[in-house]
Design a protein around this nucleic acid. Sequence first.
DNA 1: GTCGTTTCTTGTCATTTGGCAAATGGGATC
DNA 2: GATCCCATTTGCCAAATGACAAGAAACGAC
Lengths: 195, 195
Amino acid sequence: MNTAPLIHFIKETIPHFNIDMQSLEKTAEYFEELELEKGEFLLKQGKRSGYFIMLEGYLRAYTFNEVGDEITTYFYPSNRVVFEVASFFQGLPAEENIIALTKCKGYYTNFEKLNGLFHSVPEFREFGRAVLVKEFVAYKQRTLSMINKTAEERYALLIQTNRDIFQYAPLKHIASYLGITDTSLSRVRREFSTK
Amino acid sequence: MNTAPLIHFIKETIPHFNIDMQSLEKTAEYFEELELEKGEFLLKQGKRSGYFIMLEGYLRAYTFNEVGDEITTYFYPSNRVVFEVASFFQGLPAEENIIALTKCKGYYTNFEKLNGLFHSVPEFREFGRAVLVKEFVAYKQRTLSMINKTAEERYALLIQTNRDIFQYAPLKHIASYLGITDTSLSRVRREFSTK
DNA sequence: GTCGTTTCTTGTCATTTGGCAAATGGGATC
DNA sequence: GATCCCATTTGCCAAATGACAAGAAACGAC
């Protein structure tokens, strides 16, 4: 296994924290390389989520509402750690599906292995915490923008921060991610493009 | 300091995990008792957040949007751990204020002390992780309900899960928490009460 | 209690968004 | 090319929500 990109990602994530090379090499043993083809699932509803350090690719998380419509809950770009928090950490069956929008590459592990890693490389806990905090912060900001931004502002923000997504995801998925219907998104886009 | 309620809370939070009494006593040394009167601030914008295990009381977190309106971001009931994740863990100045809606009692610590505690009582990390995960899960659910529920459904959900809040917080704060104006909430309530 | 401030409700009207259906467009397959 | 399928756009109308202002009610200071 080529561990260099994994080790690089770990160091980047906690730059203030110096993990020695030996620990990093040991850390890598707890992961396996994973590649997903476009359309493959990283997680299926009902299963337990794993822990995927994704260095290349784009993923989409989605679930279904009461009337059976698909709701896109998240888009993951590269260089993110992908897991469904309740399922992974609390052992619950996932309510989300996570599917590859493009070919994806990264490193995968599961809950038991990650805990084993926390024991054998205690410094790695710092990474685990940083990741959990980072994803939590991202979700908080998303919630805030749902509360105090208009659909058009949320659309503009997505274009700014994650423009690539428009290349890989159909607009109806982006619409439900933004909390509006595809019809409304279409109108928002028409207004937006005239500015 | 009366450590019994704190120790009880820690055990309740990670029931599957057995921390011996000695460690729990040592843990308590890293906290101080804190009482807030109604109207007092637990956190002010610009400061660094602490870590407050609140056993009694209600808190409200809020910030301001671009036009200066107050946005209520969260209501905390008792038996929750209260911290602003980005500020506490990443050391950023808080963008939120957190204010007591009632008299509050609990145990308080800061980032340095909590890290010291993680070193001297490694089992306590399990508590830290459980808390982070729990709060993250709560936020995810909130985001999801903003996306795929109507204002009336969100209102009904809040009544079900956190009815006490209506006793302590004015409706305009509840309105901004739900992502609507106070005017709309008033109308939603009128409709809702006829059902 | 009185006064003044804040909160809550209501009315009116504008804007945003949704629901539905039809038209358009692009891509895949044969 | 013809056909089919799906995504997207558009039109029409309804429902939800916002903005603003006025009045009623609740609350706090004195």
